[in-house]
């Protein structure tokens, strides 16, 4: 409970990264895997902005965080389109049961 500094933000980010990775490796539903990826991207963004304030990077870290958000939006759109297509073909979206490239 010391004075809040760089370490506190980095610890929050490390925990979020671990939770996201946990969702990616254990969940069966593809949409849950996507949520895990969003958590991981947010954890990286916290690191970028924390180092932008406390490291010696001026405001560049915030610009990179903005670009990461844009990439996350593009990734979510494409991934959900693919998930919808998988559901149309296989009638479920469990990543452990889908092991064919076509029906």
């Amino acid at each position: 409970m010391a004075q809040v500094g760089l370490n506190h933000f980095l610890i929050v980010s490390a925990l979020l990264f671990s939770f996201g990775l946990f969702a990616v490796v254990t969940r069966k539903n593809a949409v849950m895997v996507l949520m895990g990826i969003e958590l991981i991207l947010n954890a990286s963004n916290i690191n970028f902005i924390a180092f932008s304030k406390f490291g010696n990077f001026a405001i560049d870290g915030q610009v990179i965080a903005l670009f990461v958000i844009v990439l996350a939006a593009a990734e979510a759109a494409i991934a959900l389109a693919i998930v919808l297509n998988i559901y149309k073909v296989f009638s479920n979206v469990n990543v452990d049961e889908i092991d064919n490239l076509k029906e």
Partner: peptide
């Protein structure tokens, strides 16, 4: 962390 614009973008986009 002093990133007001990024916070608004976070709420709008995410």
């Amino acid at each position: 962390l002093g990133a007001d614009f990024i916070a608004i973008v976070q709420i709008m986009v995410y």
